[in-house]
Design a protein around this nucleic acid. Structure first.
Length: 535
RNA sequence: GCCCCUUUAGCUCAAUGGUUAGAGCAGCGGACUUUUAAUCCGUUGGUUCUGGGUUCGAGUCCCAGAGGGGGCACCA
């Protein structure tokens, strides 16, 4: 898989031939290594199954065939025949495929439970129907094997919808034993590292990712309906801007250029607004080189959208619509149970209007002291000290207010709340509030003590944006590792003129957590970041 | 980075510092033509996460390390 180094002069055909040869040699070595490993490391059960594979091949049976043509998913069969009376035999012939989950041998009968993505069904195998040879083959099946079935739809005497097997084809032999058929996997380490095994045995895990998919599909529908265009912007950035976060640093060899994985989508999307695209969005992975927690994964999915001619009030409206509609589409109801922070939980109908409150008012509510970024910084330092909030020397009044908010008020926001009016100091890309020069037209959505969304009236004045960037740059030079640098190309774009614009970012993983009812982001990310496994 | 919890068979879990570390499931052998986590009989399977230490004796106590979880810190 490594990049091929530059080859000496060689025709493409030569190169291809030598690559194939190299690959074959490598494959042969790998096979030898695997056989050795099988003898030394793997559990006895795997050894038995590997022996079965050899035996099948001796009999001319391929344990890993290329394809199988199915006529129905299992859900389709259940939808069409779920109402059959007990003890019914039909002439309906079906070809189905799935994984064998349970085997119940009963003398000359075998009952098996099979599952495909759509659902489960019972296989009914009678020695008298399939003959000795096929019946023996069924006896050689192991839990976890993939099979293709040709048979007819029936119900058993007890009424269980089943496929009466006429022939069975092994589609893929599983050589590793399945986790416990009843308890599944509980060890979180194994569940996240071996997500494949988790998905096989844990219904809850499968459901979480169905919810996630339904949510994202819902977002796309809503945005499509409103005339938004989905775009893709670069992941590799020369300047990691658009948010305050430490970036991952990488390097482009040919350009000999240090690059950063993006920490936000914002600045490229707003360039597109300058270009006249008017309504754009992107659902994309962003990367922040920070701690891992139940609410943070270093790579996560953000949806950002920008709408020309709008401002933050429309962003609040669209946030409510997107999330409420996603709840309905993914769970069938706008009523959700918001979990957290801590053990807190609250049942909320998202279809009701969500609370709005200014950050400074929430701080006053929590501390009993009125605050405003126009106050002298000394006063706010005192208040911070009174609430055990650590303050850095370079922080101004606005940053201190935010810190006080985070430690005194944020954790009380279980039900949805739009926190608005962030100080200018902490909002370098947001437009100043039309009624208060110290605040911005900005909001963050909090639910379950977690930030889910962030939006504002976009700053489109290139002169003011340059000043804000320069303040950020100064902070960065003073030691703020999360500070933004000056993005000269972005400033150039603004100089061409950006229309008044509303912008919004939603943390998709956190919305997925809300709708799936989990308190850990790892439950809604298929392969969460973990320390590398030592083999 | 700090604190707490945790790690025992393929999986899920037991085991006062005291015989040879047990059980269910899975596996293996056997019985069974209507099972539903099938049932019944028999049975294989262990680097108790790793390395030290205390002790007559350690899965159990102590120290160090590793993985995971939670919290704090960091972090939009």
């Amino acid at each position: 898989m490594s990049d091929a180094p530059d080859q000496p002069v060689e025709t493409p055909a030569d190169a291809a031939a030598s690559q194939i040869e190299a690959a074959q040699n490598e494959a042969a070595q790998n096979e030898a290594a695997h056989t050795e490993a099988a003898q030394i490391d793997l559990p006895a059960e795997t050894g038995r199954r590997l022996a079965k594979i050899a035996q099948l091949r001796d009999q001319g049976v391929e344990p890993y065939p290329y394809r199988f043509d199915r006529s129905h998913t299992l859900a389709e069969i259940r939808a069409a025949h779920g109402e059959l009376e007990p003890g019914t035999e039909t002439e309906v012939r079906v070809q189905v495929a799935g994984r064998v989950l349970l085997l119940r041998e009963q003398g000359k009968l075998v009952f098996a439970t099979m599952r495909d993505r759509s659902g489960e069904i019972q296989l009914f195998v009678s020695k008298a129907v399939v003959g000795d040879e096929t019946f023996a083959a069924v006896g050689q099946l192991d839990l976890g094997d993939w099979v293709g079935i040709d048979g007819t739809v029936m119900t058993t005497r007890k009424g269980e919808l089943s496929v009466k097997v006429e022939s069975i084809q092994l589609l893929s032999k599983a050589v590793r034993p399945m986790p416990d058929k009843w308890h599944g996997l509980t060890d979180t380490d194994t569940r996240f590292r071996q997500r494949y095994a988790d998905l096989i045995v844990n219904e809850e895990a499968r459901r979480n990712f169905e919810v996630r998919h339904a949510m994202i599909a819902s977002f796309r529908r809503t945005l499509h309906r409103r005339g938004f265009i989905e775009v893709e912007t670069p992941v590799l950035h020369v300047e990691a801007g658009g948010a305050h976060a430490r970036p991952f640093i990488t390097h482009h060899n040919a350009l000999d250029q240090q690059m950063y994985l993006r920490i936000a989508l914002e600045l490229h999307l707003k360039r597109l607004i300058v270009g006249g695209m008017e309504r754009v969005y992107e659902i994309g992975r962003i990367f922040r080189n920070e701690g891992i927690s139940p609410r943070h994964n270093p790579e996560f999915t953000m949806m950002e959208l920008y709408q020309a001619f709008g401002d933050y009030s429309e962003m609040i409206e669209i946030t409510e619509t997107l999330i409420t509609q996603a709840a309905i589409d993914a769970t069938g109801t706008s009523v959700v149970t918001v979990l957290g922070p801590g053990d807190a939980s609250e049942v909320v109908d998202l279809a009701q209007p969500w609370r709005r409150a200014r950050m400074i008012d929430l701080v006053e509510e929590a501390t009993g002291v009125a605050v405003h970024p126009s106050q002298p910084v000394e006063q706010l330092r005192e208040l911070a000290a009174a609430h055990d909030v650590a303050v850095l020397d370079r922080w101004g009044s606005g940053k201190i207010i935010e810190e006080i908010f985070e430690s005194t008020a944020e954790h009380k926001l279980t039900a949805p709340c739009f926190v608005t009016g962030h100080p200018v100091e902490i909002s370098p890309l947001a437009r100043v509030d039309r009624n208060d020069p110290y605040l911005t037209e900005r909001f963050e959505l909090f639910m379950g003590g977690r930030e889910l969304a962030n939006g504002y009236s976009e700053l489109n004045d290139p002169i003011e944006q340059r000043q804000r960037f320069e303040e950020e740059q100064a902070g960065k030079e003073a030691g703020n590792a999360e500070g933004m640098g000056v993005d000269h190309d972005y400033l150039r774009a603004l100089e061409y003129g950006m229309p008044p614009t509303g912008g919004l970012g939603i943390g998709m993983d956190r919305v997925a957590m809300l709708l799936a009812g989990t308190t850990s982001i790892k439950e809604v990310i298929l392969f969460p970041t973990l320390r590398p496994e030592v083999f």
